[in-house]
Every structure is written in C-alpha cells, then in structure tokens.
Computed example of a mutant assay.
Amino acid sequence: MTNPSTWKRSSFSGGGEGNDCVEVAHLDTHIAVRDSKAPTRATLTFPTVSFSRFVEALKEAGR
C-alpha cells in the first residue's frame, strides 16, 4: 500500500494532548484511516465514495 504522506487529525481529538483520535489521509481513490496513538500499526482503507457516505451519515446522526 502507498504510504500516505499527509495525515489529518480529527478536530475531535479529546482532551489533554489531543491524541485520542483517528487520522485520515487521501489517496488516489481511497481514504486511509489510522489510530493516532499507534500510527505505525495497521491502516484501514476505504473507497472514497464509501467513506464520504459514512461521514455524512455520522453528521446526520449527530443533528
């Protein structure tokens, strides 16, 4: 898998050091997701369309 060069941390990263969250990176056709506390461990990837729908569903659920 291509190693994403730019990871973005969630703006909802908890208190303290702000490292209790996930990070995402945009690949060509997928979104990569990793645990910010263990960035060298497993990375999940999702098709961009599926990940976008997932995020939209979370936003709707939070309203």
Score class of each variant (00 low, 15 high):
residue 1 M to R: 08
residue 1 M to T: 07
residue 2 T to H: 11
residue 2 T to D: 14
residue 2 T to G: 09
residue 2 T to L: 14
residue 2 T to E: 15
residue 3 N to I: 12
residue 3 N to V: 14
residue 3 N to D: 12
residue 3 N to L: 09
residue 3 N to H: 13
residue 4 P to M: 12
residue 4 P to D: 14
residue 5 S to A: 15
residue 5 S to V: 12
residue 5 S to W: 04
residue 5 S to K: 09
residue 6 T to E: 15
residue 6 T to I: 13
residue 6 T to Y: 05
residue 6 T to W: 02
residue 7 W to K: 08
residue 7 W to R: 07
residue 8 K to R: 04
residue 8 K to W: 00
residue 8 K to M: 04
residue 8 K to T: 01
residue 9 R to M: 13
residue 10 S to F: 03
residue 12 F to T: 08
residue 12 F to M: 12
residue 13 S to H: 11
residue 13 S to N: 15
residue 13 S to M: 13
residue 13 S to P: 09
residue 13 S to C: 14
residue 14 G to H: 07
residue 14 G to T: 08
residue 14 G to Q: 11
residue 15 G to E: 14
residue 16 G to D: 12
residue 16 G to E: 13
residue 17 E to T: 10
residue 18 G to W: 01
residue 18 G to A: 13
residue 18 G to P: 06
residue 18 G to N: 09
residue 20 D to N: 15
residue 20 D to P: 03
residue 20 D to T: 14
residue 21 C to H: 06
residue 21 C to M: 05
residue 22 V to Q: 04
residue 22 V to Y: 05
residue 22 V to E: 03
residue 23 E to G: 07
residue 25 A to T: 11
residue 25 A to K: 11
residue 26 H to Y: 07
residue 27 L to T: 13
residue 30 H to L: 00
residue 30 H to S: 00
residue 30 H to N: 00
residue 31 I to H: 08
residue 31 I to A: 08
residue 32 A to G: 08
residue 33 V to E: 02
residue 33 V to Y: 05
residue 34 R to M: 12
residue 34 R to H: 07
residue 34 R to N: 10
residue 35 D to E: 10
residue 35 D to H: 14
residue 35 D to S: 13
residue 36 S to V: 08
residue 36 S to E: 09
residue 36 S to H: 10
residue 37 K to R: 14
residue 37 K to W: 05
residue 37 K to V: 09
residue 39 P to Q: 02
residue 39 P to C: 03
residue 39 P to M: 00
residue 40 T to P: 03
residue 40 T to C: 05
residue 41 R to E: 00
residue 41 R to V: 00
residue 41 R to Y: 02
residue 42 A to N: 14
residue 42 A to L: 12
residue 42 A to E: 13
residue 42 A to S: 14
residue 43 T to N: 04
residue 43 T to E: 06
residue 43 T to Y: 03
residue 43 T to G: 05
residue 44 L to S: 08
residue 44 L to A: 12
residue 44 L to C: 06
residue 45 T to W: 07
residue 45 T to F: 07
residue 45 T to H: 12
residue 45 T to I: 15
residue 46 F to L: 10
residue 47 P to G: 02
residue 47 P to N: 01
residue 48 T to G: 10
residue 48 T to M: 14
residue 49 V to W: 06
residue 50 S to M: 09
residue 50 S to F: 03
residue 51 F to Q: 00
residue 51 F to K: 01
residue 51 F to V: 04
residue 52 S to V: 08
residue 52 S to T: 15
residue 52 S to Q: 12
residue 52 S to R: 09
residue 52 S to Y: 03
residue 52 S to F: 02
residue 53 R to Q: 03
residue 53 R to I: 03
residue 54 F to L: 14
residue 54 F to G: 05
residue 56 E to R: 04
residue 56 E to M: 02
residue 56 E to F: 01
residue 56 E to H: 04
residue 57 A to C: 08
residue 57 A to I: 04
residue 58 L to N: 06
residue 58 L to C: 13
residue 58 L to W: 01
residue 60 E to W: 01
residue 61 A to P: 01
residue 61 A to N: 03
residue 61 A to D: 05
residue 62 G to H: 04
residue 63 R to S: 01
residue 63 R to M: 03
